[in-house]
């Protein structure tokens, strides 16, 4: 067991836990976006930053990836942390301020508007879908493509992926509904949407739909409005 202090509260947790887990297990709230209980920590959104006391002054770390250390003294709500979360939320609002999830997250750190401008998109690149497809489903039908601010989530070549098994796990873990699932009743097909729309078949794993499975894996995409 490891003993540490978070916001003045002395707590004990198992070795190997992260600061975020330690805090949550003890009723201390830290806002998160890219974190998902079922997925490996990613450290991408930086909403969960906290201050760690060090001999050289406070050090800012992402609580979702930082392991608990014996004797660590952690502060989750300082002026600096408030400011860092505020600016991160403002950037998120510039990107996806139209989504209820981001609006709520921003409101929780006191942000309701943004002074910045970014190309608007529901996808906030939290990578939950990519990680779920890799870690939970074990397929890796989608990945991050490009880099920097050009980064997008995409299946290879941005066309319908032959590896996708239509399980819709990505839809489940997407916080901002950037990936949705549509049932087209007359042909009983599901369609996933990330920036583009991809014609898909019914879930290959699902017995109920098994007899209705049609091979549409290689169909061309239709670009979503």
């Amino acid at each position: 067991m490891i003993a540490l202090t978070i916001d003045g509260k002395e707590i004990e947790v198992e070795t190997g836990r992260t600061l975020l887990e330690a805090a949550r297990e003890n009723g201390i709230h830290i806002p998160t976006l890219c974190y998902h209980e079922a997925l490996k920590p990613y450290g991408g959104c930086r909403m969960c930053v906290v201050e760690l006391e060090t001999p050289r002054g406070p050090r800012v770390v992402a609580s979702c990836t930082y392991p608990v250390e014996d004797g660590a003294v952690v502060h989750t709500e300082t002026d600096q942390i408030g400011q860092l979360r505020k600016v991160a939320a403002q950037l998120l609002m510039a990107r996806a301020g139209h989504t209820p999830f981001i609006q709520e997250l921003a409101a929780s750190v006191g942000v309701d508007s943004t002074p910045y401008t970014l190309p608007t998109d529901s996808c906030v690149l939290c990578s939950r879908c990519v990680r779920a497809c890799q870690e939970i489903v074990g397929i890796g039908a989608i990945s991050m493509a490009n880099r920097g601010s050009d980064r997008v989530v995409a299946p290879p070549f941005s066309i319908s992926s032959a590896d996708c098994i239509e399980c819709a796990t990505c839809v489940q873990v997407c916080p901002t509904d950037a990936i949705t699932l549509k049932l087209i009743t007359d042909r009983n097909r599901t369609v996933h949407v990330w920036p583009s729309e991809f014609a898909r078949g019914a879930c290959r794993l699902c017995e109920y739909h098994a007899d209705e499975w049609m091979d549409v894996g290689a169909q061309e995409q239709t670009v979503h409005g």
């Binding site: 450290g43 991408g44 959104c45 930086r46 600016v87 991160a88 950037l91 998120l92 510039a94 990107r95 910045y116 401008t117 970014l118 906030v124 690149l125 990578s127 991050m144 490009n146 880099r147 920097g148 601010s149 050009d150 980064r151």
Partner: peptide
């Protein structure tokens, strides 16, 4: 241009 784009501050902060 060289940011990998993984974390939000570098991906969008440098862009803004």
């Amino acid at each position: 241009e060289e940011s990998c784009g993984q974390c939000l501050p570098c991906r969008w902060g440098t862009r803004v």
